[in-house]
Amino acid sequence: MPEADDDDRALSLPVGTQLTGTDRFIAKGRVFNKIRELRQRAGLTQAELADRVSATRQTIIAVEAGKYAPSLELAFRIARVFGAPFEDVWSFDDAG
């Protein structure tokens, strides 16, 4: 079961981790993410994160750079790897 695997491999970032200071959301259009900061805090390389979410390293690079907005499935997988709520990793600017 992929979901169980994802849960088992979830890292121990506290739920609701707040990123501050230089931590910034990276945007693809109006979809923002904090993957780079969360990944660096978790001590993961882009390749390791890619393996955990069954994506290629190039896709993680593109997502982190805000060049590619992933599917909901991949977005949830990424959030589960960090053990963080979806909203802490992803946000959507609906006022823009």
Binding site: A50, D51, A55, T56, P70, S71, L74
Partner: peptide, 9 residues
């Protein structure tokens, strides 16, 4: 390679 192609590809 663990993943050869993904959704972006």
């Amino acid at each position: 390679a663990a993943v050869k192609r993904d959704e972006r590809d």
